[in-house]
Amino acid sequence: MMLWWVVDLTLCALMIALAAGSLFAATLRRRVIFFIAFGLLTAIVWARLQAPDLALAEAAIGAGLTGALLLAALPTAQPTEHKRDADRLIEWVSLLLAALLAVVLIAVLTTLLPVVDGDPSLAVTARLSDAGVSHPVTAVLLNFRAWDTLLELAVLLCATIGVLNLAPARKAPRHAGALADTLIRILLPLLILTAGYLLWNGAFAPGGAFQAGAVLAAATVVLHLGGGVRLPPFSLAQLRGLLALGLLLFLSVGLVQLAFGQALLQYPLAWAGSLILLIETGATLSIATMLSLVYLGGHPLRDWPVAGDSRDREI
């Protein structure tokens, strides 16, 4: 027990230190680096708290993609202006206020322990056998609370369309060199394989559409950073189709059940497993496309969403 106590204390102290670094370090570049380290540490903490799904997602999305996004945005970021004394004062006051709020919140938290479990008849484990998948988190995400996940895909779609509306993609960095090309050639198939494995695994072990989609998007990031290899050339219509695919499949599968007198998103027990896999496959492709486009900051072709008179121009 003592050993775990020391481990937990170290993890918490490190979390706070890295968070402080990414909030208060002097330059933006340092803050971004601290943030990525914070994300990776968070993944370890999730593993410690028996949340392996989150560990995978955090490493791929939280630290990986968000980190890449922030790093890519760094060169154009405005340097912070020098602070005046009055601002300093406000800063100290707000920090004091934050400390006070944190103390109150922690005091409230102590009243919550021990945490009560909800109604046992509504527990996920009680109905897991009817869910079609044996991994509890996947069961919650794609069956019990599938409506949340569906709307979450809509959130991601919304952000992607917003990004696409705003700007064409960032230019690819300079060609990174032959060594990077070789690395990419090895890395790329591995990433795609990993994505497939995570997708398949989701039914009975940690993994699923979000992790798989994020790993596929990581392949785009690697390709983009390498600079030498072209991204897969999709037309605008194909891209729109890929964006809509996940949500469309999810919604259609959910609506078809209505015709048989079932509820929205109610899968027949015998089919539940395969339907969930189908939905997850579509979702993985859409998520990968959306996260890639969000990272690229737009579409490599001009004239989103419909090609106009000018010929599509690739950047």
Binding site: D119, F144, A263
Partner: peptide, 9 residues
């Protein structure tokens, strides 16, 4: 939604 009792679903 999904035919699950509210609370679980």
């Amino acid at each position: 939604l999904g035919g699950w009792a509210p609370g679980l679903g």
